[in-house]
Simulated assay, not measured.
Amino acid sequence: MSSKQGVILYGPPAAGKDTVTAALTELSPRYAQFARLKVGIGKSAGYRMGTMEQLRELEAAGDVVYANTRYGNTYVIDAPGLDAAFAAGVPVVHLGQVDGIRALVDGYRADWSVVLLWCPRKATADRSLGRGDKDTAARLVAWDATREDLDAHPGAIWDLRVDTTVASPQDSARLIDHLLAQRAGAAAP
């Protein structure tokens, strides 16, 4: 088991990945959201904006751990970005694809805690509209894709499952923090 601990938050759009990550960073400054490299347009907050040339360079060096395309953009988890994130503390990586989890767990050596954050489709719609998203319809398509992804991978193993319509962001953060403390204790000599 690696001494580097990281958190993967998996779930559909508006399940609470950003909100739970914010609660984690309030709980402890060692947590920080991993800023994926984004090649495309639109929202830049929380991303490292990049170019197709940068993506090609990462691919040529074998430094792309996982990449996916959604909303017309390409989102990249890269080894140099992960190296920097681990040097700073405990990265919290947001994913919406089981294949992304597998690629990250298999492709970057660390002690990854995988957390399923879930909410019903209606909660995604309500939260998306409530926060003023202009692409709620696309987020509901992504919710459907996440549900299909889960159904297609019934053997996916979660270290923790949280229904974000029941657990508050602060309670979710405490559960995740406790999980990491348990895993660190189990790994201690």
Rank of each mutant, 00 (worst) to 15 (best):
59 E>A: 13
56 R>E: 10
93 V>Y: 07
71 Y>E: 03
94 H>T: 05
71 Y>K: 03
107 G>Q: 09
106 D>T: 07
116 L>C: 08
95 L>I: 14
68 N>A: 15
80 P>Y: 05
68 N>P: 08
50 G>S: 05
90 V>M: 03
77 I>A: 15
94 H>I: 07
54 Q>H: 06
51 T>K: 06
94 H>Q: 12
90 V>L: 02
100 G>K: 00
51 T>D: 10
78 D>G: 11
75 Y>S: 04
86 F>G: 13
103 A>D: 06
99 D>A: 15
93 V>P: 00
84 A>F: 08
76 V>A: 00
75 Y>A: 04
108 Y>E: 12
82 L>E: 05
88 A>T: 12
87 A>D: 14
72 G>C: 14
99 D>Y: 09
87 A>I: 12
79 A>V: 07
67 A>P: 08
103 A>C: 04
83 D>M: 00
75 Y>C: 04
54 Q>I: 05
59 E>D: 13
77 I>P: 09
52 M>T: 10
109 R>Q: 14
75 Y>W: 02
101 I>V: 12
92 V>W: 01
114 V>G: 09
73 N>L: 14
116 L>A: 09
87 A>L: 15
89 G>D: 00
91 P>T: 03
59 E>R: 12
57 E>M: 05
116 L>K: 06
61 A>S: 14
102 R>N: 06
104 L>T: 03
52 M>R: 10
101 I>S: 02
56 R>K: 04
99 D>Q: 13
112 W>H: 05
76 V>Y: 00
115 V>T: 09
95 L>C: 06
69 T>W: 14
74 T>R: 15
49 M>W: 04
96 G>C: 06
103 A>P: 00
62 G>H: 07
110 A>R: 02
52 M>L: 15
81 G>Y: 08
65 V>A: 02
79 A>W: 04
82 L>T: 04
116 L>W: 03
115 V>I: 09
63 D>M: 06
83 D>L: 01
